[in-house]
Design a protein around this nucleic acid. Structure first.
Lengths: 349, 349
DNA sequence: GTTAGCACTCTACTTTGATGAGTGCTAACA
DNA sequence: TGTTAGCACTCATCAAAGTAGAGTGCTAAC
């Protein structure tokens, strides 16, 4: 059977209506709409065809039709028209970003906040990943006899702290000197390169302080491979109550549990950060817990390198056009801000 | 009317039962209980008295009684018996803490996790506050022409980062030198003292780099007065679904919103960090949004100084005895860990 | 002071019936 | 051959009515 133009038009109308109202769309409702000159009976025939083709589903015999995941996929790929945000909304987004920024984490939290408020869905933001960053400075700070704080600062302004335990006998001035040496040798290198460089350039020191250097290398390593949970920021979890799908308290609880674990979210966003833009609808999601939802993600970058991603989790019945528009705008604002406050005109050039 | 021993015994039984089951307690239910040799009719009379005295409430005429906030207050102060956790549970708590710790934030997140799992309530943890900490090191890192990253490291191992904008003309080596000077002059001082010390000891530098030093002092200041939201870690928000009080979706939504704002939570915990232990029941809470809940908090400390607090938010009908026991144990474990890995044997002694 | 008995109250649950939105099918129409 | 009107049928939703059960307050007797 062919999906001719009329079928597409009707399917789009059904999806638009269902996204808006959330109630199954009946043939009469549709025939009464502006621009539809065909009778409900005809629409019923078309609907029957669309159902046969897998685009529509019926909750029960005497209810209207609802779009299937397949229909949403078609909608997203071909049918939907992207709305541009009103200038007012763009200003509103930029305004929120435009307050005094003292930490990069502020930016992340604000992003989550903006997205959830603008879309009324749950937002997720993956904090900048260290993988591709180059080092700016390493600072060792002696806390007590056996504990040393390692501060790893990248040229993108990210700071990670790691605590390592050392044999006593490392005094503060030695650590200061070492900090300077490490900074000098490792600046401009990626973390991976830094690990190797330490093993090559600090052979002498490694002999006398083997355990210390092992810990140090481990710290660097641990910084690259992030502990999934910590780099995820959630926003608007309360929006879960907007989804009729989660009126069932037990389901809602299970879903919140998944969100709280953050393990899945991290994997999803980490995957997503390889693509400019991605939309996963219902069963397309790789994880069972998400097969009832859709996930839309985008990435942000510094110097043209993708360093993190952000997105929206909601019911498959979400306003994809709007969500995409919002993410697009947020992405643009985010890139501007990030490149404005770090490294763009770094003194390394 | 006097609250004699029999009345207290009956009241305690009602509270115990209601905490356990969550359904209003009837006179017959109670009279059938082990250890009660009095008839339901007698109990009814006592109940009527207790209601008159304000300890009990009736949801409707033909329902059993439920305890009032006043009753819980009496229960907490006089009636309840603290249960000690089983050795198994103590071990379980310590086990979770006992994994590799690389950052102090890990400890905070784990604490929230442990508490919510052990009590089945929502947990809140206030990250260590900088107020009373002394400085260990200040490190200035030049990111680009106009941005400098300020790292403030306390002797308790806390690290705060602030980004400041500067006029160009500060080169990296000058900042390095300044970092060392600042560290030398300010080490061992509290942040408040440090602010003053800068104004005194760096007069010469301040003349040439006025704007920079103003930003620097502002950073220190901002570190002491924490941005409420960021220092709060929540755990087990999903447990909200355990409370029949929040079966009503709108109420649950409103409550989640309050939790997400974190503003209130911060104020509560900040207040609480002045007291060793505190229990606020229902209307005793200073904030309207919390008047349906009880909040139990405790503090943790380093070197005998309270530096943060943690607690549980739940319905007034919560198992106070157990919650107190759990918080007590978590507090002990937390103190041990924190003093073990920072500053206890600092080289300043 | 304690208890048994009884009438009364109120919630929660089940049953029943009515309503209406929506469908599929058939036959007639252009 | 595609479109439409008509009709019987299905099913969820809602309101009304009835039932069961837990619990109370009051009174009178022990």
């Amino acid at each position: 059977m062919e999906l001719d133009e009329r079928k597409q038009k009707i399917l789009k109308a059904i999806i638009d209506d269902y996204i808006l109202t959330g109630i199954p769309v009946g043939s009469r409702t549709l025939s009464k709409k502006e621009g539809f000159d065909i009778s409900s009976a005809t629409i019923r025939n078309v609907m029957a065809d669309l159902e046969e083709m897998g685009y529509l589903e019926q909750p029960h015999t005497s209810a209207g039709r609802i779009p299937s995941d397949l229909a949403y996929r078609l909608y997203v790929d071909k049918l939907m028209r992207l709305s541009t945000l009103s200038p007012k909304e763009v200003v509103a987004i930029n305004d929120i970003f435009d307050t005094k920024i003292l930490e990069i984490n502020d930016v992340i939290e604000k992003t989550a906040d903006i997205i959830s408020k603008a879309t009324n869905h749950i937002s997720v933001v993956l904090a900048p990943q260290m993988k591709q960053s180059t080092l700016k400075r390493i600072q060792l700070v002696k806390l007590n006899d056996t504990k040393v704080l390692v501060l790893i600062i990248t040229s993108t302004g990210l700071v990670k702290e790691k605590l390592i335990t050392v044999a006593s006998g490392l005094d503060a001035s030695y650590l200061d000197m070492l900090s300077n040496m490490l900074t000098e040798k490792l600046a401009e290198k990626t973390l991976d390169e830094a690990e190797q460089a330490i093993e090559q350039d600090f052979k002498a020191e490694m002999l006398t302080h083997e355990r210390f250097f092992k810990s140090l290398i481990y710290s660097l390593h641990d910084t690259v491979e992030p502990q999934s949970g910590k780099d995820i920021v959630l926003g608007g979890a309360k929006n879960i109550f907007n989804y009729p799908e989660y009126r069932d308290v037990d389901k809602a609880k299970g879903f919140l549990e998944v969100l709280e674990t953050k393990e899945l979210l991290f994997q999803m966003l980490d995957q997503a950060s390889k693509l400019e833009f991605s939309i996963s609808i219902g069963h397309e999601n790789p994880y069972d817990e998400m097969k009832q939802c859709s996930v839309v993600t985008a990435t942000y970058s510094i110097d043209g390198k993708n360093i993190g991603s952000f997105g929206v989790i909601g019911p498959t019945r979400m306003n994809y056009a709007r969500v995409v528009s919002v993410l697009d705008q947020v992405g643009k604002s985010l890139n501007t801000i990030l490149s404005g406050f770090i490294d763009e005109k770094s003194d390394k050039d």
